[in-house]
Amino acid sequence: MLARLAVALGLLLAAGAAQAQDAATLKSSMIGQWELSTTERSKTCVVTLKADAAQAPQGMKLELEPGCATALPFTKDIAAWTVKGLDIVRLETSAGDAVIDFTEVESGIFEGLRANEGVYILQNLAAARSLAKSMDQMIGDWSMVRGSGRVVCGLTLTNNEAPTPDNYEVYLKPRCDSQVASFAPKMWRLERGALLLIAPSGETWRFEADDNAQWRKSPDSADPLIMLRQ
């Protein structure tokens, strides 16, 4: 009986140590510069997470770049950061209250939700700036073609902000085929590596980059729809 209790206690201690190690690993990996933004980066703020203890209970120091409170007003309440549980990165007030909690959804990309505001993204600053460069490279004229090479539509992706936040305007050129013309997208954005075209109805076409530097409509089909740079 005592042997069984000893084994059970050992397992509990080992699990606790593993959890502590996971939290410590996450905390260590967060040290550095991050971009806090709306989902499609129309509003951004650079946050530097530090390893030094802050005045907030159990929190650590951080720095917000000038202009953060203007771009993202809720950031004016942020005084420190910490890791809660195994996988929650918390930006908190000086009293230790949560301003926003983030969880990792992809490697190096964290999502947090604020009630009545929406989702915010926290990601490595270098990766975020690489994404910004990618968005700039998308602006311009494109052709939609079928797998056979037949051109079915031309369109222009712009950097003009659309009425819906975090989206940009797209314009179809004349003489698109009926499928594309009836879809009639008015907005576009990049989302987690995919290109989204969005109609006023909310219908969305998703295109993913392939190995040939072109974008294929997903899910794929026997007669794929492909976007090519003109």
Rank of each mutant, 00 (worst) to 15 (best):
M1H: 13
V7L: 10
L9G: 15
Q19T: 01
Q19L: 12
K27E: 14
I31L: 13
T38D: 07
S42I: 02
K43Y: 04
V46D: 15
V47H: 11
A53R: 12
Q55Y: 06
Q55I: 09
K61R: 12
E63A: 14
T70W: 09
T75P: 14
I78M: 10
G85P: 10
D87A: 12
V89C: 14
L91Q: 01
T93G: 11
D97N: 08
A98T: 05
D101A: 03
I109P: 08
R114S: 06
L122R: 01
Q123D: 09
Q123F: 00
N124A: 00
L125W: 02
A126N: 13
A127V: 00
L131H: 01
A132W: 01
M135H: 07
Q137S: 09
M138N: 01
G147C: 04
V151N: 10
V152M: 06
G154Y: 00
L157F: 14
L157N: 00
T158C: 13
N159F: 13
A162W: 10
T164M: 11
D166C: 02
N167D: 04
V170L: 15
Y171N: 07
K173M: 05
K173D: 07
R175Y: 07
S178M: 07
A184P: 11
E191Q: 08
G193D: 04
A194M: 14
L196H: 15
P200V: 01
G202T: 03
W205M: 05
R206K: 13
S218N: 01
S221G: 13
S221V: 01
A222F: 08
P224S: 04
M227W: 07
